[in-house]
């Protein structure tokens, strides 16, 4: 399919339909708007077809198409900025604040039962389908606005300055939200995927 010597992509190949489905799911997750997601995927596919010659086969075809889609989504977000009011975000981020404070004693040390254990060979999880199902479920469990900031940072690769400008929140608030998102995901993966082993501190 992505035979660099031939340099042509077969757009009717069934693997393209599968990539398209994955792109749609990714776009829906970022935009929470089925219509806009469909438009973004369509635009990304048109661009990919148009600029097919610039795909040199250096990366996987899917990686290349996802990078085009990501750029489309970022453009879309920049055009329709301030989708979520900053005030909502601040209020939303307070709801899970206490959970994380509860992991530490009054001097700021881990409670013995909450110390992060060592994860055995986490990299190998990345190639397991079940891991990604757990990952999705953990992402879903984050408060919606927390997950929104996390996805802008990690999936769309926006820097925190841009995220806070888009959402009208302070940079330090952005860092706090990202910290909560990561700590929440970590705890969820620890519980639902990696299992428990205590680490001494």
């Amino acid at each position: 399919m992505n035979d660099a010597a031939v340099g042509r992509i077969d757009w009717n190949d069934p693997s393209i339909a599968k990539i398209r489905r994955d792109m749609l799911r990714f776009a829906q997750l970022q935009l929470r708007d089925a219509g806009a997601a469909e438009d973004m995927v369509q635009e990304a596919l048109f661009s990919a077809m148009k600029y097919e010659a610039s795909f040199a086969g250096r990366s996987a075809l899917k990686t290349w198409m996802f990078s085009i889609l990501r750029n489309k989504i970022v453009d879309h977000i920049r055009k329709s900025s301030r989708e979520i009011a900053g005030a909502d975000l601040v209020a939303g981020s307070a709801e899970d604040g206490d959970d994380f404070d509860a992991l530490f004693d009054e001097r700021g040390h881990w409670n013995p039962e909450d110390r992060p254990p060592t994860w055995a060979d986490p990299e190998s999880s990345l190639s397991q389908q079940q891991f990604w199902e757990v990952f999705d479920a953990c992402l879903d469990r984050l408060p919606p606005k927390t997950s929104r900031v996390f996805m802008m940072r990690e999936f769309l690769d926006l820097d925190t300055d841009e995220i806070c400008a888009e959402l009208g929140i302070s940079t330090s608030n952005c860092w706090v939200i990202l910290h909560r998102a990561r700590a929440g995901l970590r705890m969820c993966l620890d519980r639902d995927w990696f299992g428990q082993e205590d680490a001494p501190c």
Binding site: M1, S15, I19, A60, K62, F66, Q129, E154
Partner: peptide, 11 residues
């Protein structure tokens, strides 16, 4: 995740 490379290698 953002590169679409979830799960086993596909291509």
């Amino acid at each position: 995740y953002r590169e679409g490379q979830r799960g086993p290698a596909e291509d």
